[in-house]
Nucleic acid binder design. Structure first.
Length: 274
DNA sequence: CACGAGACCTGTTCGC
DNA sequence: TGCGAACAGGTCTCGT
């Protein structure tokens, strides 16, 4: 479910919660495969006694910097994949369905990783780069300029939609924001990356950043049965609006499958370049 | 290198 | 009403 704006929303909520400063007193791993590394035994022995310090984000990863009992604390990395969520709740509440990992904290709280589809993963590492090293640029950072995007597009000959979903190309976009950015940029999802002109790349750059910032401003999108409090879903231009009118020209939005992902676009506004 | 299919999972919605 | 198919915000691996 979560893409960059949803992950950023969760991060902001946790940062203004009482999580920061809390020491981890207990671990309950309810679905073993949730833990990517290290082993459950090492995870538990290493994380107990460490305290939550910085809460960051890289692409769709949440990056928790822990303060260790011994100075260089570890990093707890969490990827929510399709259905993951993080909940700070009273330690004594009955366990709801789908909790996969629960960290018990001082002060009667617990941080729970809830994930119906079990795709989410958790890492405890001393060097976050060991997990994050293959990610592409961070789209909202100053280093991501129109020229950088243009050069990256020129370096590949790939369809735009799958390319934007490739986290090694650009970190943080998912199915919603890729479709929304392509519509805003008037680019067809199947257009080939190396065929874009500089002005087209510049417009795509602007569109990517616009939809991500708008998503963050709206606290992300809340779809289906997983509600997170965001309302960006009320402002979708094409995503999951098959058959409904394009907000710009009124033509019915079309759905096709690209790289096994539902893809939504306006056949009038978004012209194929190839 | 680029792309498609299958796998990993559960829950909801759609269509007959 | 019931039941299977299709679909869902992600990513990995394999084969062509």
């Amino acid at each position: 479910m979560p893409e960059l704006p949803e992950v950023e929303t969760i991060r902001n909520n946790l940062r203004s919660s009482s999580l920061v400063g809390k020491t981890i007193l207990g671990v309950d791993l309810l679905w073993a495969r949730t833990l990517a590394e290290p082993s459950p035994q090492e995870f538990t022995s290493r994380i107990l006694g460490q305290a939550f310090e910085e809460i960051g984000r890289r692409g769709k990863f949440l990056v928790f910097h822990l303060a260790g009992r011994v100075p260089p604390g570890d990093f707890l990395l969490i990827h929510l994949r399709m259905s993951g969520d993080l909940l700070l709740e009273p330690a004594g509440d009955p366990l709801p369905p789908h909790h996969r990992l629960v960290l018990y904290l001082e002060g009667g709280l617990r941080l729970a990783f809830n994930d119906a589809r079990k795709f989410g993963r958790v890492w405890l590492v001393s060097d976050p780069q060991s997990v994050l090293k293959d990610l592409g640029p961070e789209p909202l950072e100053p280093g991501f300029t129109p020229q950088v995007l243009y050069n990256l597009l020129q370096a590949h000959r790939r369809q735009l939609k799958p390319l934007l979903l490739d986290q090694a190309f650009l970190a943080g976009l998912g199915n919603i924001y890729a479709d929304e950015a392509l519509h805003l940029a008037h680019l067809h999802p199947l257009s080939l990356s190396h065929c874009l002109t500089y002005p087209q790349a510049e417009r795509l750059w602007w569109s990517i950043r616009y939809v991500l910032q708008e998503g963050i401003r709206r606290n992300g999108a809340s779809i289906d049965w997983v509600y997170r409090g965001g309302d960006f879903q009320n402002f979708f231009r094409v995503y999951q609006r098959t058959g409904q009118p394009c907000p710009e020209c009124g033509a019915p939005v079309v759905r096709l499958v690209v790289g096994q992902r539902g893809t939504h676009y306006c056949p009038v506004c978004q012209i194929l370049e190839s």
